[in-house]
Amino acid sequence: MLYSNFSEFNEICRALGLKDVTITKLQNAKKLQLLDTPLKNGSVAYVEAKKMLSDINIPKRAYIFVREEDSYEYKFSAIIVKKPSFVFWSLYEFLERAKKLHSKSIINPNCVIGNNTSISKTGVIIEDDVIIDDNVIIKEGVVIKKGTKIGPGCVIGSNGLEVKDTIFGKIIISHKGGVVINENVEMGALCTINQGIGEKMTQIGSDTKLDCGVHIAHSCSIGSENIITANVTFGGSVLTGSNVFFGLNATIRNGVKLADGCFVGAGSVVTKDVKKNALVFGCPAKFIRKVE
């Protein structure tokens, strides 16, 4: 079920104008899910336009919020509403606000923690031989694995910027998907690593090195042994392979995938997927040559 307190759940659903038969369906659903991950039976998602369905495999027992004016044959359980995005994100925010982490943070005694550093008392795991410099903020839902070094002034596990119209107003959606920083990552000063959104956590692969001022947005998956120089910005849900190099001040658009061995030139704006061992440069970035 989506939420154990039926009366509270019914109240928010009725405030959204949902009918009793729809509320019953949602009570029996398993989870809300975004379309950037494979849908499963019992999941609830939404589409704003018919064309969004063309590249999506939707199980028959998935529930999809769709616009009432769309007239096509449904091969799944459609829930017709006026504003699919509004209804979905309203329910999403309601459920996220209800989540509470009760597990006490676990910090290995072999860690070194600097002055004026703030670590959440709940939901954090820090393994052995981690070094955390001064003035770092670590929010709940963060896992930092052994041998990692965090530079001064970093913020790890902060909310991302996903702004949606909801029943609560036009808000920044809650991010509670977590952050995992794998073994032997090194992070320079003033980096920001956002929480994942939904079930898609933010991850940084082992032995990756970040210079100062790097921003990694929600649900990115950064591969192992990447080198990320100063002030590189990653939009949400970027996926990188291993041994990828990012030059100074590069910007990677949300959802872009970069294969193993890529090289992104300084100041480049990457708006499309990059193939294995490709050197790209420019604004927008274009293929220059293969990396030897």
Rank of each mutant, 00 (worst) to 15 (best):
V179G: 00
D207R: 12
T208S: 15
D207S: 13
K200P: 00
K209D: 11
A189D: 07
Q195Y: 09
S174K: 13
V179L: 01
I167F: 10
N159K: 04
G178V: 08
G213A: 10
G198V: 06
Q195H: 12
N184D: 14
G198P: 02
I204K: 03
S174Q: 14
V185D: 01
L190N: 11
N194A: 13
K170V: 09
C191H: 03
I181V: 07
K209C: 11
V180S: 11
D207Y: 15
C212F: 12
K209Y: 15
I204D: 07
D165M: 04
F168M: 06
T166P: 01
G188F: 04
K209A: 15
L161D: 01
I171K: 06
H215S: 13
D211V: 14
G213Y: 12
G178M: 07
G160W: 06
I193F: 09
N159P: 00
I173F: 06
E186C: 03
I172H: 05
K164C: 05
T192C: 02
G188I: 05
H215Y: 13
K200Q: 15
D207M: 11
F168S: 07
V185K: 00
D165T: 04
I181P: 00
N159D: 10
E186Q: 12
G169R: 03
K176I: 10
M187S: 04
I171P: 02
Q203D: 03
T192E: 11
T208K: 11
H175K: 03
N194S: 14
I172W: 00
L190C: 10
K164M: 10
S158E: 06
L190G: 01
I216Y: 12
G160P: 03
G169D: 08
N182T: 00
D165V: 02
N182Q: 13
Q195L: 07
Q203K: 15
S174T: 15
I204V: 13
G196A: 08
V214P: 05
A189F: 09
D207P: 01
Q203P: 01
G196W: 09
G169L: 07
G160M: 08
D211T: 14
E183W: 02
D207T: 09
M187E: 03
K200I: 15
H175P: 02
T202H: 10
G198Y: 09
D165F: 06
E162K: 02
E186I: 08
G188C: 03
E199Q: 10
T208H: 10
V185Q: 01
G169I: 08
G160A: 06
G198Q: 04
G160T: 06
I171E: 10
H175T: 04
A189I: 03
E186Y: 00
K209R: 15
V180M: 07
Q195S: 10
T166I: 03
G198C: 05
G188R: 02
N182D: 14
G160V: 05
V214G: 07
I216S: 10
T202N: 08
T202L: 06
T166L: 02
M201C: 11
G177S: 05
V163T: 11
S174H: 11
K176T: 11
G205V: 11
I216F: 10
I204E: 07
S158F: 00
F168R: 06
V163F: 08
T202C: 05
G177A: 06
E162T: 11
H175L: 04
L210Q: 14
L190D: 04
H215N: 13
N159L: 04
E186M: 06
I173E: 06
Q195V: 09
